[in-house]
Amino acid sequence: MEDNGSTESLARSIPWVLWLIWKNINSLLYAETQVSVVRSLSEMMVEVEQWFLLNKPQLRTTEERARMDNSDKWCPPDNGVIKCNIHLNWRNASMHSGVAWIARDQAGNVYHHARDAIVHAPDRMVAEFGCVIWALTCLRDLGVQKVIMASDYYEVVKAIKVPYQWPRYRDLLQQIMGFKGTFDSLEFEGEKVVANGVARDIAKSVLRDGCFQSYLAMGGPSWLHDRIARDAVRSDV
């Protein structure tokens, strides 16, 4: 590791070499088998390159950094684009979860909002993907053409942007990717919890108020009118 004359590829492969030796010892002791050293080293180098490729830090553009700096408040979309904030109020795999979305334009005017209850999702990621698919289906059926989907659960946004890192959820991610052909533009972005407050409150009301019947409505809920208005004012600042 301290040899300045060694290549970067060789230096960063050392942990994999140690792991390869350990696995080979176990194969000899417990299975009395041994894989070809040449083949093992070749496969190891492929794994090393893939690991560093997948974990390479992503540099953010100036525009992305500016958006993150201002993300404590709700950020409006560009003119002609509908921004749909979503939230899943997850409890556990056996209980109901409340889901909600609210779609607004560049002036903060509410286009539509919806809420529903889902059951028996095996884990939170499956439920989150289900929430995304439900919201996209609604927006597609409403004829929306340009959409930004915003969620405060960053793992979901990351999985959608880099689906090959999440093979366990491949089928759900493929369903989500399939929606790109039904919209003129479709983007996904993370939203801080405080900026996603309206969608969170609507989703929480499902379990809090026992509202298990789904509904879709024009405009925003009357009991959140002031919050929505404040978001619209701040979006013009």
Rank of each mutant, 00 (worst) to 15 (best):
N4M: 15
G5N: 13
S6T: 15
S9Q: 13
L10S: 07
V17P: 00
W19K: 00
W19Q: 00
I21R: 07
W22R: 00
K23H: 09
N24L: 12
Y30E: 04
E32T: 09
T33I: 10
Q34K: 10
V35L: 11
S36M: 06
V38A: 04
R39W: 09
R39F: 12
S40W: 08
S40C: 06
S42D: 15
S42R: 14
V46R: 10
E47F: 10
W51T: 03
L53E: 09
L54N: 07
K56V: 02
K56F: 10
P57A: 11
P57N: 13
L59M: 12
T61M: 06
D69R: 00
N70Y: 01
K73H: 06
K73W: 01
W74F: 05
P76V: 12
K83N: 00
K83F: 01
I86R: 06
I86W: 10
I86V: 15
H87V: 09
R91Y: 14
N92D: 15
N92K: 05
A93W: 13
A93P: 00
S94Q: 12
S94R: 11
M95T: 15
S97H: 11
A100D: 13
I102T: 05
A103P: 05
D105A: 03
A107K: 14
N109E: 14
N109Y: 15
N109R: 13
A114E: 13
D116S: 14
A117W: 15
V119K: 10
V119T: 12
R124H: 04
V126L: 04
E128T: 13
F129E: 05
C131F: 10
C131E: 11
V132P: 01
I133Q: 02
W134K: 11
L136D: 02
D141I: 03
L142W: 09
G143V: 07
G143M: 05
V144Q: 06
Q145H: 05
V147C: 02
Y154S: 08
Y154H: 09
V157M: 07
A159I: 08
I160A: 04
K161I: 09
Q165F: 02
W166Q: 02
P167H: 07
R170F: 07
D171F: 12
D171L: 07
L173E: 05
E189G: 02
V193T: 14
V193Q: 10
A195R: 00
N196S: 04
G197K: 08
V198Y: 04
A199G: 03
L207D: 04
L207K: 06
L207Q: 06
D209C: 02
D209T: 02
L216T: 11
L216E: 08
A217D: 03
G219C: 06
G220S: 09
S222W: 12
D226M: 01
D226N: 02
R234C: 01
D236L: 08
